[in-house]
């Protein structure tokens, strides 16, 4: 219940923030440019790439997830509302969950807007719909994980810019893990690093049309662990 109220406020907050619209527009321009160039490039040559937009988003989320989440706790802290939230009869869990779900919901809407590309494809050709669905399920979970990480850093600092910067760095590293093999000589270490990376659970499975239970566990696990740590970080305000 409290989660729902916090969630409602966060969603409202996104819609009341010009910055969030700016981010959405930026994502749409980016995906749009790549969609059009792919369309032009593949005309009469190859079928349209069904996972194109999710693949583009998988990279852009490294930058946009921190921008979408940097506000969540940093602002509450700056405005002092965090103290009030924590004296309200709600648990930290509900606060963290509500905020996370709010961010995820906004992200989901953004994702749903990009369905328009799929409808365009559907109207001009017969794309591999199953493949696209798989890629979208993947990018949805992927987005959730990046948002959770962004929120964690927001909870750790009062400064939004610092929060955004730190989470970008961490997300970039988690993204780069896919290329661990290029850097790490030992293949087993590289494998572990890749197993921890975001791309390692998206680019070769979801984005290729294959849903693997382990990848779902990975993203759900990242979200669970990061949210848990976030709850503890928020709680630490009490004993500070």
């Amino acid at each position: 219940m409290a989660t729902w109220i916090v969630f409602r406020r966060e969603v409202g907050q996104y819609f009341a923030s010009p910055f969030a619209y700016l981010i959405t527009a930026a994502v749409l321009v980016l995906t749009g440019v790549l969609f059009n160039s792919d369309l032009q490039g593949s005309m009469t040559v190859k079928p349209a790439e069904p996972a194109l937009v999710p693949l583009v988003m998988s990279f852009t989320m490294i930058f946009f997830a921190p921008l979408l989440t940097m506000r969540l706790f940093a602002e509450e802290r700056r405005e002092g509302t965090l103290e009030l939230l924590m004296t309200a009869p709600v648990t930290e869990g509900s606060i963290v969950f509500g905020k996370f779900l709010g961010a995820w919901f906004y992200y989901t809407l953004l994702m749903v807007i990009t369905f328009i590309y799929q409808f365009i494809l559907l109207s001009i050709t017969q794309p591999d719909v199953g493949h696209a669905i798989s890629a979208y399920i993947g990018i949805w979970l992927y987005g959730g994980a990046t948002l959770a990480v962004g929120m964690l850093f927001s909870a750790m600092t009062e400064n939004q810019i610092v929060a955004a910067f730190l989470s970008m760095v961490v997300l970039f590293l988690m993204w780069m893990g896919d290329q661990a093999g290029q850097i790490v000589a030992n293949i087993d270490v590289a494998r572990v690093v890749r197993a921890l990376s975001l791309q390692g659970h998206f680019s070769t499975s979801f984005a290729s049309g294959l849903i693997r239970a382990e990848d779902i566990v990975y993203f759900a696990g990242i979200i669970t662990v990061v949210l848990y740590v976030t709850i503890r970080v928020v709680e630490s305000n009490r004993v500070r």
């Binding site: 493949h131 294959l210 849903i211 693997r212 239970a213 566990v217 696990g221």
Partner: peptide
Amino acid sequence: VALTFLLFQRNALTLDLTQ
């Protein structure tokens, strides 16, 4: 989480959505 992950990885539960 890691244990669950490895468990699922071992069992290779997959769903192929490609046409």
